[in-house]
Each structure stands twice: as C-alpha cells, then as structure tokens.
Write a protein that binds this DNA or RNA. Structure first.
Length: 316
DNA sequence: AACGCGGGGTA
DNA sequence: TACCCAGCGTT
C-alpha cells in the first residue's frame, strides 16, 4: 500500500509538476529564501519576489552585508515583514557562525531565526538532498487523508511518525515535492478534487469533504493593518519620519490624541527589529533599521554602529 | 496551547 | 464581502 502510493504519486509528480524556480536549484541558500517566502504565502505570489530577491542578493554573503532596511524594502507587498528581518539575521548568523555555509544539520538550522521544524526539513531535503521527513499544512492534510482517513486528527508527534514511516528514502526530494504539489492543486482543504487524484483508489478519505474554515477577522483597521501601513510608509522615506508625520501617513483621521496608540505600535515594531526609533535634534524619528544616511547606499551596515534599538522620550 | 503576524487574488 | 494561503516566535 505505501509502496504503491509512493510509486503513483511520484509518477504523477514527474508528469504534472509545475516548473517553479526553486525546483531548478539545489543551492541551500536559494532554497532557504524560497521556503521563508513561502511561509503562509501562495506560490504564485512568491515567484516574482524570489526572482527579484536573488537578483539583488545572489549569495548569502551579499544578503548579510545589506542593511535590514533594504531587505525590508525588497520584501514590500509580500507580507509578514518579520520574515525579512529573520532572513537577514539568519544570513548574518551563517556568516559569523558557519563561515557562510548553511549548516547541514536539523538542530543547527532550527537555531537560526525564522527557521522552524518545517523550513529546516525543507532546506535539508530540497537543498542538501537529505532523505528527511517533514510536514507543513499541505503534507499533513494529504498524509492524513491518504493513510489515516477523514476523521483522523493526528497530533504533531503522530504526524512526525507518519511522515517518517511513509518516506521513500531513495526518492525523498520528489516525494516531499509531490505531497505538496498534490495538496496545492488536487487534495485541496475545502474541496478535494478526488477525480484528478493519482492515488484516489488507495486513499482512505476518497470522496469526503474538508471541514469549514474558521472566519478570518477583519483586516482593515486592525493592528496588523496599521503595522503594515507603518512599514509601507517608511519604505519610501530614507530619512525617516517624525511620529506625527507617520501618523498622518497611516490614517486619515490621525490627531495627536492618537499618539500613544502610535507609539505603542512603533515601540513594538522596534522591539521586533522592523523599525528604528531614535531621538534626533529633539525630534522623535522613526525609520527602517539601518536605512538612514549612515548606512544603506555605502558599504556594509554595522549593527553596533547603529546602536541597536533606540526608543526616544515619551514626552512631547 | 493560544495568539499575533500581511497582503493580494479570487468567488 | 469573505475566504484562501509551502509557519514561526512569543507567552
């Protein structure tokens, strides 16, 4: 049963696989960039960002030498901006701790910022060609449906064991890619297209329907929305912005009465390394980290020279 | 275990 | 409008 699923699914993948740019490389750095971008983000949206990012930062060293501000700017529109900071920090860490070579070890990979269980496994398998088992939401759904049935609710550990048990160690790359390809195009969460599935004859869930999603909350006007607006406003401002100026840029009805609200957002963003808040000439100025006149266009950005996260006075 | 984190495409 | 989406870090 397992061997048949492996055979049919991989055969289907060889015939049907989309020609995605990260499937044309085994460079661990390129794979890492693609996997971080693909976290919670659709394939079609990632493709142009992936191409642009690697055109600007073809090596992990070039990424490590950039300012976080430039990486955040290049990330603009992709969403989850913290990923840009994590990726940049990971590049710095690889340069400093591993001499520029991404570690070929699961635990060491998972110590890097922004790299969790899934991404570490994907880098090992797709970058280094290691026969490792791992799972994301797609793989979890596909494996659960095929091998456990429509009512199964496996724990994380059970999914680890299942993925491990059904992994064909001599064809791990194609197997893992095939599972994700099937999950993305056929074995859909809500409406699986079992008629198009290469393993529907073997699947324990064939013909069943996915469970309804939980309602997504309102985005416009949310905290997330304004965080995104703040980063977007700062992307076009190399000199930074005064706090009130930033307030006007992110909401039409801004008044100084909103200042405490805005300060809270800015200090949280600063703590996460997405912005830099500093007092300059008596003004409270916010900018992307390392994006000021001191860094960016000329040479390597130095974290120590920037002095880490600064937060200006809370009084007027 | 629960929560916060973006954004654009599509029905 | 509401729904969808190759996770991770924090609490």
């Amino acid at each position: 049963m397992i061997a048949e699923v492996q055979e049919w699914l991989i055969e289907w993948y060889r015939r049907e696989a989309r020609d995605l740019p990260w499937r044309r490389t085994h460079d661990p750095y390129h794979i890492l960039v693609s996997e971080v971008m693909l976290q919670q983000t659709q394939v079609e949206r990632v493709i142009p960002y992936y191409e642009r990012f690697l055109a600007r930062f073809p090596t992990i060293e070039s990424l490590a030498q950039a300012s976080p501000a430039e990486v955040i700017r290049l990330w603009g529109g992709l969403g989850y901006n913290r990923r840009a900071v994590y990726l940049w920090r990971a590049a710095r860490a690889v340069m400093e701790q591993y001499g520029g070579s991404i570690p070929k070890d699961r635990r060491e990979l998972q110590r890097l910022p922004g790299i969790g269980r899934y991404t570490a496994g994907a880098v090992l398998c797709f970058g280094f060609g290691e026969p490792v088992a791992f799972w994301d939401t797609n793989i979890a759904r596909v494996l659960t449906r095929i091998f456990l049935g429509p009512n199964a609710r496996p724990t994380s550990q059970e999914l680890d064991q299942l993925a491990e048990r059904v992994l064909p160690v001599d064809r791990a790359y194609e197997w893992n890619q095939a599972l994700m390809e099937l999950g993305a195009r056929v074995c859909l969460a809500r409406r699986p297209r079992c008629g198009d599935c290469p393993v529907h004859e073997l699947c324990r869930s064939v013909g069943t329907i996915g469970k309804p999603r939980r309602r997504s909350e309102q985005f416009t006007g949310s905290r997330r929305y304004y965080r995104g607006r703040i980063i977007e406003a700062l992307r076009g401002r190399w000199g930074g912005m005064r706090l009130d100026e930033l307030g006007w840029a992110v909401r039409e009805d801004y008044t100084p009465a909103h200042r405490a609200w805005l300060e809270r957002l800015v200090t949280d963003l600063a703590r996460e390394g997405l912005v830099e808040a500093a007092e300059e000439r008596g003004e409270y100025v916010v900018r992307l980290p390392g994006g000021g006149e001191t860094g960016d266009s000329c040479g390597e950005w130095d974290e120590r020279a920037a002095g880490g996260v600064k937060v200006g006075p809370h009084s007027a």
